[in-house]
Design a protein around this nucleic acid. Structure first.
Length: 210
DNA sequence: ACATTAAGTGATT
DNA sequence: AATCACTTAATGT
């Protein structure tokens, strides 16, 4: 595990800190589709991604959901950062997009290290900044992009985190993730296929224009 | 062969 | 862009 830490975080964090993470952190394997964090839950651990990807979803009172962004290797969840400091509940849901390996760190440690390790402090602030940026990107996407562009971006993101231009999902699932109807997804995907940007199959989509 | 689920389409708002 | 109503295609039993 120490070796994996060095590979993925070595360039960010100092050695003594990595050793401490190695000592304290719990390794967790999560299979695709499994839920990590539910809305309203208190967060007790901070996840550090080693491999795989996690989908971050926002949901309203009616149960309508919307995908905000994906977390990948080397990322951590910004929600935990705010939660730990303010002792508040999670505003988001996190679901494993692929099989994922991560290290769980108790939240007290995370604030403790803020004082003792400079690289940690840097890492936290850095993550916070990049999450904030992604959040703004998500807002832009929803507010300014048309549905067809949103779908294409979604497909690209998904291909990215899976490292595979072949996406396995249904039109219905995409509709849920983007908070629209299946019919609209089908129509727009058909258009993208006519534009030679994708190829449609049952339960899978191949992206040509990466 | 039949039932179930995914995807395609026209018409309407 | 959403909804309805209906068709067609793919897949499981």
């Amino acid at each position: 595990m120490l070796q994996e830490l060095q590979e993925n975080y070595g360039y960010l964090l100092e050695d003594p800190l990595l050793e401490e993470i190695d000592k304290i952190g719990l390794v967790k394997q999560i299979t695709e589709g499994q839920q990590l964090i539910e809305i309203g839950e208190y967060i007790k651990f901070m996840p550090l991604l080693i491999s795989g990807a996690i989908k971050i979803i926002r949901e309203d009172e009616k149960g309508d959901e919307l995908v905000l962004y994906f977390l990948e290797r080397g990322d951590t969840c910004a929600m935990t950062l705010t939660c730990c400091l303010g002792d508040t509940k999670s505003e988001i849901r996190a679901i494993a997009e692929t099989d994922t390996k991560l290290i769980m760190i108790p939240v007290q440690k995370m604030s403790e290290w803020m004082n003792t390790y400079k690289t940690w402090q840097h890492f936290i602030l850095q993550s916070y900044q990049s999450r904030m940026k992604e959040m703004l990107e998500a807002i832009d996407t929803i507010a300014f992009l048309k549905m067809d562009e949103r779908i294409f971006k979604y497909l690209r993101d998904k291909a990215m985190v899976h490292q595979n231009e072949e996406i396995h999902t249904t039109h219905q699932q995409i509709a849920y993730d983007l908070h629209t109807s299946r019919v609209v997804v089908s129509r727009l995907l058909k258009k993208l296929e006519n534009d030679k940007k994708i190829i449609l199959h049952r339960n899978s989509i191949k992206i040509l224009d990466l």
